[in-house]
Design a protein around this nucleic acid. Structure first.
Lengths: 304, 304
DNA sequence: CATGGACATAGGAATTTCCTATCACTGTAA
DNA sequence: TTACAGTGATAGGAAATTCCTATGTCCATG
């Protein structure tokens, strides 16, 4: 294993530059001055023997190799940080910073309830929470911006490790006026031929809700799309249509105060809510513990 | 992406130490003096905040974290080297050093014939060849000791990329005395109930030959095992038993000069010979080209 | 034409690196 | 027991590197 001629610092410069496409901003991101970054990149180009970025006076354009190397470099930096994290986890288990992402149809209903429990179990953990849609979460995970994410399967997992947390079924939500929705539990039959109001494109709930009854003739109401579950609930209250709401959101009280008719759909295919992280992550143990805590929190909401 | 506190150089120290378990030898491997490595490792332990190695006066023992971090570090170094290789490949395509491994039942018969062709096509490539058994080759590949390997499927590929090269069938090889083996092509039936002499444990040809006729009652001759194909051929010549020889070795003239009776087994399941390399390798293009050249060389042997 | 923002360059101070020389210790062999 | 060989740690200083400030040069824009 011969010694590398390049340094992580220089790789960091390259990655920052490929993100910012601007020497000064990249330098700032690296906590160095612009000349330092400039020299560092020049030296990297020297040792590698290839041009990594085209500098015109006005803009920076990465060369194809530059882009490729920046991408590999990003993975390298993540690996280096994993090593540091691993060491930190070793000396102070379950402490330090953790950036956790969650999809908007789960995060706001689950995490606030779970926070006391988490704080209690891991008092030295500083939790940074983010809500994004699945695709963005997975990007962030692979790019090192996020450490772990809470998402709903089915979805295309890449090179990820997952821990199952709980299944999340659906309630039918209809305006109080809509008498065709009975009180109490109903089955998927009431939905046949109906049009559902859904969240806007990109939310996995959209896709999942439509496949809650595989083969059934359930279609989206193309004329509406909501940006959040609370908007959706408001729209249903206004009598604009019906929708499926995740059980979790209802148990969390999202529909409390509104005049919805809610009926559990016991026979719907539930979503599988999981915690996911990079296979190479240094804190799989923490993530698994965290997943268990979130499962507990969800169970507590059910019985309450 | 915050800047790492550790350096590749220090990681290199750790990896070398975990390989050598001796500061002086590790230092030599890193081309530094022992005090330098000593200080570097101490500093690494300082920034990581964990002890990586226990130093007694008499020996070095890696701590569990030390081992884990060394393993991750090794992957990091490979990634860094891949970047350098990628850059080199960019500025001088298909040049530089390449360490190619091959199993002993293929390498010696294929590579010598192919060398002129390779030299011709890639005059700036310096090829280092190694012959090892499959398991060792795969280890070397993942550990960065080898860049690409030539092996025979089926086998458990890990995170590898492969390029198919050619199928390699079998000839039945028997002593000249053994009249039960007819001249000309034969089918698997002649083998039923027979005992085959094979290479010693670890050679994939052993396993492959026995499964050339799935379901057939062919068993190894436990009392013999050869260390190389030429030994095996000599043993058959001596009348000690019969065996299956790969077509490639015969076309390469391995049995030339011996008194074997050779009969092609047209209906045997052939081995699939492939080139394999790390998915993350920077020279997939070169490897694919090389595989094509080797396929050509093999075909040339057939027609000749 | 003046301006602001971009990246490159220069020079020097501060830091870091890394070597040689040496120490302190410990098993081993005479 | 003593001498020795081999281990990793330590010290000190020379050399190299790093990285900042200040400045230069070019270009697009108003």
């Amino acid at each position: 294993m011969s010694m590398p001629g390049i340094s992580l610092r220089q790789i960091g410069f390259l990655v920052a530059l490929s993100d910012e496409l601007n020497f000064s901003r990249a330098a700032e991101a690296c906590n160095v001055t612009q000349p330092t970054l400039s020299a560092g990149l020049r030296e990297l180009e020297g040792t590698l023997g290839v041009q990594l970025a085209e500098r015109t006076r006005r803009s920076v354009i990465m060369t194809p190799v530059g882009r490729e190397i920046a991408e590999r470099g990003r993975r390298l930096l993540i690996g280096a940080q994993d090593i540091e994290t691993l060491a930190a986890e070793q000396s102070k288990p379950h402490a330090g910073d953790l950036t956790l992402g969650a999809i908007p149809t789960i995060g706001p209903f689950l995490l606030p309830r779970a926070l006391p429990r988490i704080r209690d179990a891991f008092p030295n953990l500083r939790l940074f929470l983010r809500e994004e849609m699945t695709e963005s979460l997975l990007d962030g995970l692979h790019g090192g911006r996020l450490d772990a994410v809470v998402i709903a399967q089915p979805f295309e997992i890449g090179n990820l490790e997952t821990a199952f947390m709980f299944d999340d079924g659906y309630h039918l939500a209809a305006p109080p006026s809509q008498a065709e929705v009975p009180d109490g539990a109903v089955t998927g039959e009431v939905l046949t031929g109906k049009r559902l109001m859904l969240l806007e494109k990109g939310h996995c709930l959209q896709r999942h809700a439509l496949s809650a009854y595989p083969g059934a003739d359930i279609r989206p109401d193309e004329s509406f799309s909501a940006t959040s579950l609370s908007t959706l609930i408001a729209m249903v209250s206004e009598g604009l249509g019906i929708t499926l709401l995740p059980d979790l959101s209802i148990d969390a009280g999202a529909a409390r105060g509104s005049q919805l008719r809610l009926a559990p759909l016991a026979d719907a295919c539930p979503r599988h809510v999981v915690m996911a992280w990079r296979k190479t992550s240094a804190r799989a143990g923490l993530f698994r513990d965290l997943a268990a805590l979130l499962t507990q929190s969800r169970d507590a909401m059910r019985t309450a």
